[in-house]
């Protein structure tokens, strides 16, 4: 099963890469140039500080991903990839890059839950923030960022804790300093070099 997913992913990725090079030339021209609708969004970060998205990040290149912390299989891969991109960007000395990870499960992912999720993973918070907020606000933002998160059926543990999971878009999104969406990548299995390259291109 895992092997099948892996090989399918690669098969899907290679033609996409060719298509990009042939038609637009991804390196200098991004596949998208889209304003995020419905803004501004009033959110909270892991320290419960108020964050206005995307306004607070105008002038910065934003790398944004989408997770929920009750997902211990796929989502930590995405977070780990975000950390790797952050490290690479630091290494090649690109400044003005902000990393954001938005929870699509704001009911459970309160600021303190997100903070703990980050602390366990030694997140470097210097340019990395987790975001959550009112469910209606988060849902609207997700819609405008083409991210789907469908909540599954709820069961209960013996102590009565509700248990539910999401079927969700596996996504990292690149946003330019004007606040426009410029490229989208897979979140859990992703080509880090490609994203770092795109960040470099935007930074130039």
């Amino acid at each position: 099963m895992a092997g099948l997913i892996k090989s399918k992913g690669i098969l899907f990725f290679i033609p996409l890469l060719f298509l990009c090079t042939l038609t637009t030339g991804c390196a200098d021209k991004f596949p998208e140039n889209k304003i995020i609708g419905g803004q501004p969004y009033s959110l909270l970060n892991q320290d419960s500080d108020s964050v206005v998205f995307p306004n607070d990040f105008k002038g910065k290149i934003v790398v944004m991903s989408f997770i929920y912390t009750n997902c211990p299989d796929i989502c930590p891969l995405t977070t780990h990839n975000m950390q790797s991109i952050q490290e690479q960007v630091k290494k090649v000395n690109i400044k003005n890059v902000q990393f954001l990870e938005l929870s699509f499960d704001p009911d459970r992912d309160t600021p303190s839950v997100l903070k703990e999720y980050g602390n366990i993973r030694n997140i470097d918070y210097s340019n990395f923030e987790f975001l959550t907020g009112k469910k209606s606000v988060v849902d609207t933002l997700l819609r405008h960022m083409n991210v789907v998160a469908l909540q599954g059926d709820t069961t209960f543990t013996k102590s009565g804790t509700p248990v539910y999971f999401f079927t969700h878009t596996d996504r990292i999104t690149l946003i330019d300093p004007k606040g426009k969406i410029r490229n989208e990548y897979r979140g859990s299995k992703t080509n880090i070099a490609e994203i770092v390259n795109d960040i470099k291109t935007l930074g130039d």
Partner: peptide, 18 residues
């Protein structure tokens, strides 16, 4: 509290587990 055997799956570009 609860332990389950799971698999991660892909459907219509979405990821989930069951």
């Amino acid at each position: 509290e609860l332990v389950q055997i799971h698999e991660t799956f892909k459907t219509n570009g979405l990821m989930g587990m069951r």
